[in-house]
C-alpha cells in the first residue's frame, strides 16, 4: 500500500471534521474491503480515519425496531439474542457474510457505505425497509443506494446506526460465487406491514435493486408458486466468467422462491 496518515478520533464530530476537510481522506470501518484495495495499491488515500473509537457499537431492541450501531460487526449482529428474536433472518444473513475473520472485523456501516454490488447488507436494508441514521440525517433505504459503490452519503457523512423494523417474516437466500463466496445472486424476501419487499443483490449492474414484479405477486399470495412464472429481465444484470446475465436472472427466481418458502 501507499503511505497514508492515520487518525483514530474519539468523537464523532472529530471524525466528521477530519473526513470533511480532506476529499482524499477515507473512513476505516472494519476495512474488509478497503485494506485489500490499499494493499493492491488501487486506492491512495491521504488519510485513514479509523472509526473504531467512536463508540458506535451495539444493538438495541425497542418495540418492533432493532437498531444496530454503525460499527457493529457482522459477528456481533449474528450473535445478538435480541435481534435474533425479532429478525432471525437478518441474524442468519450476518452469520453467512464472508468468513469468520471477516465477520469479526467487518461492520454494518462499512458494508453499507461501500455498497459493493455483491454485498449482503444492502439487500437486507432494502427488503426490510430500514432507515440509515447518519451524523446529520435519516435516509430511507430506498433512497440510500445510488448504483454500485455509490450512495447518497456526502463527503464526511458517517453512518451512526441502522434501524430495522421487524418484518412479519423474512429470509435471505444467497448463491455464492465459488471463488470469492460473495453473492452471485442474493435475494432477501420480507413480508412487512407495508407489503412484501424483495431485494436482489449480486445480480444487478447498478447494485442492489427491488424486484417489484415479485413484490406485487407475493403481496397478493405469499407463496413460491406466486412467483414461479415471473422472469427477471436480463437487461442490466451482471455477467462474468462465473455467471452470465441469463444464469443470474434464473438464479434470482430460484433464490426468491427458496426465500419465500423458508421465510420465518
Amino acid at each position: 500500500m501507499y503511505d497514508f496518515a492515520y487518525q483514530k478520533p474519539s468523537s464523532l464530530a472529530d471524525a466528521v471534521k477530519a473526513l470533511s476537510a480532506d476529499p482524499d481522506a477515507k473512513a476505516l470501518a472494519g476495512g474488509m474491503t478497503l485494506i485489500p484495495v490499499l494493499k493492491q495499491r488501487l486506492n491512495k488515500p491521504s488519510l485513514l480515519v479509523d472509526l473504531a473509537k467512536l463508540g458506535l457499537v451495539g444493538i438495541t431492541v425497542s418495540g418492533n425496531t432493532v437498531t444496530i450501531a454503525g460499527m457493529t460487526t457482522h459477528g456481533a449482529v449474528a450473535a445478538d439474542a435480541g435481534l435474533k428474536s425479532k429478525i432471525p433472518s437478518l441474524s442468519e444473513m450476518a452469520s453467512f457474510i464472508g468468513d469468520e475473520a471477516v465477520r469479526h472485523r467487518g461492520t454494518i456501516g462499512g458494508s453499507l457505505a461501500n455498497n459493493d454490488p455483491a454485498a449482503d447488507y444492502p439487500a437486507a436494508v432494502l427488503a426490510l425497509d430500514a432507515t440509515i441514521k447518519t451524523d446529520r440525517r435519516s435516509i430511507k433505504g430506498d433512497d440510500f443506494f445510488q448504483g454500485m459503490f455509490t450512495t447518497t452519503l456526502e463527503q464526511g457523512e458517517l453512518i451512526t446506526a441502522v434501524e430495522f423494523p421487524a418484518p412479519e417474516k423474512g429470509a435471505y437466500e444467497k448463491f455464492r460465487n465459488p471463488a470469492s463466496r460473495y453473492a452471485i445472486v442474493g435475494v432477501y424476501v420480507a413480508k412487512t406491514a407495508g407489503g412484501v419487499r424483495v431485494a436482489v443483490t449480486g445480480a444487478g449492474q447498478g447494485g442492489v435493486f427491488r424486484h417489484t414484479a415479485m413484490e406485487q405477486a407475493l403481496s397478493a399470495n405469499f407463496s413460491p408458486d406466486a412467483i414461479a412464472n415471473i422472469t427477471t429481465p436480463v437487461d442490466g444484470l451482471n455477467s462474468d466468467i462465473h455467471a452470465s446475465a441469463e444464469y443470474r436472472a434464473h438464479l434470482v427466481g430460484v433464490m426468491a422462491k427458496r426465500a419465500v418458502a423458508r421465510a420465518y
Binding site: N177, P178, A179, S180, Y182, D240, I241, H242
Partner: peptide, 23 residues
C-alpha cells in the same frame, strides 16, 4: 468442479486472484 485459469482472447488473465480462481 471448481478450478479454472481463464484467459480472455487478448491474453489477459481473468482468474488472476482468489476472487475469481476457485480453490
Amino acid at each position: 468442479l471448481l478450478e479454472n485459469a481463464v484467459y480472455d482472447e487478448g491474453g489477459q488473465l481473468l482468474s488472476g486472484s482468489f476472487m475469481d480462481y476457485s480453490m
